[in-house]
């Protein structure tokens, strides 16, 4: 039986939600196409995730445990994934599109001779490959792409599918792995203060745009985020002017997020930004320009002065949370 192999990304001792979304979709695709669903996880302690992967329907689980996976480094990730791909010989290799997987997808394609479809909004396994939709031209339109061949590699945008459980019992294989000598050396990982909550995994995001003009405005954003337990995001404009760190940037050139609740505050809604958040479930927009394009996609749009609205909103949420 041919297989779909899903590469599972972890962060802070947890499987990324976006990886579970891909695994859930691949389970449906495997059932439809009479294929086997396999998952591979690389982590300092990869075996710890095997139970959860069975809950989501993986029939084969490959765990590769090594301290080298504590921080991201492309060479050992590529080496380990090539080893598992050789062992499983899948027709489709799928993963969530993250900065970590973007770093290795091309190398995996080049080394395996497989076809790569990166950053897709959805995909279907077909008789001779994969068919997928990808946002292109600064996320203004979608292109329908096909890839054929013995192996197709796909990375999927966060929020494209729901993560749903379907428990099964898997064969779990702990794979021996010896990292090669790598030329590149990781010197340090610099976490910015805005990283209290991992933005791409957050269930609530408070994002600031050009309407936030100063430190006072930034404090209103931080207060609301803290009250909600939310991650802080930002549009390119307020990253460029130095108010928010580059790690917070959401959009076509930044992160793609898909939280349950997204606050777009002082964000006009240019496509370069909305490309990174349009999969959010509930969108709240606050902007004083009632004609701002963000209102065309917001679940709830508030036309008004964010400097007046935010303190009241934070206070009301604080009351609601403590009630």
């Amino acid at each position: 039986m041919s297989a779909i192999l899903v590469y599972i990304s972890t962060t802070g001792g947890k499987i990324k939600r976006s990886s579970l979304e891909v695994l859930s979709h691949c389970r449906d695709q495997a059932t439809k196409n009479n294929m086997e669903l396999a998952a591979v996880v690389l982590d300092n302690d990869a075996a710890a995730f095997a139970d959860q992967l069975q809950q989501y329907g993986a029939r084969k689980v490959y765990t590769v445990s090594n301290p080298i996976f504590k921080s991201h480094l492309n060479a050992p990730v590529t080496q380990a994934l090539l080893q598992i791909i050789e062992q499983v010989n899948p027709r489709v290799f799928a993963c969530a599109s993250t900065e970590g997987t973007k770093d290795v997808l091309g190398a995996l394609a080049a080394k395996t001779g497989g076809a790569a479809l990166p950053d897709v909004a959805n995909f279907e396994v077909t008789a001779d490959g994969v068919s997928a939709l990808r946002p292109v031209m600064a996320a203004k339109i979608l292109s329908q792409n096909t890839a054929s061949g013995e192996l197709v590699l796909v990375s999927v945008r966060s929020g494209s599918y729901d993560a749903t459980e379907s428990p099964t019992v898997a064969d779990v294989t702990d794979v021996a792995f010896t990292p090669a000598d790598f030329a590149a050396v990781l010197r340090e990982v610099i976490s910015s203060t805005g990283d209290k909550v991992d933005l791409s995994e957050a269930t609530v995001v408070v994002a600031a745009g050009r309407g936030i003009k100063d430190e006072e405005g930034k404090k209103l954003i931080d207060d609301l985020a803290e009250t909600l337990g939310a991650a802080v995001g930002a549009s390119r404009a307020v990253v460029e002017n130095g108010l928010f760190p580059a790690t917070a940037q959401i959009g076509q050139t930044g992160k793609v997020v898909s939280p349950e609740l997204y606050f777009a505050i002082g964000i006009s809604g240019a496509v370069q930004h909305t490309a990174g958040m349009s999969n959010s479930k509930v969108i709240v927009a606050i902007n004083k320009d009632g004609d701002a394009p963000i209102f065309q996609m917001a679940s709830y749009g508030l036309v008004g002065d964010l400097y007046k609205i935010l303190p009241l909103l934070t206070e009301e949420i604080r009351k609601a949370k403590s009630a």
Partner: peptide
């Protein structure tokens, strides 16, 4: 190894409710 078959429009999200009023009314409705 890959080809583009066609292009299509981005599916638009449906706009929801647009609220106007003073800050207190807006926050209470939201």
């Amino acid at each position: 190894k890959t080809s583009t078959i066609s292009y299509q429009e981005m599916p638009a999200r449906e706009a929801g409710k647009k609220l106007e009023g003073d800050a207190e009314e807006l926050v209470s409705s939201l």
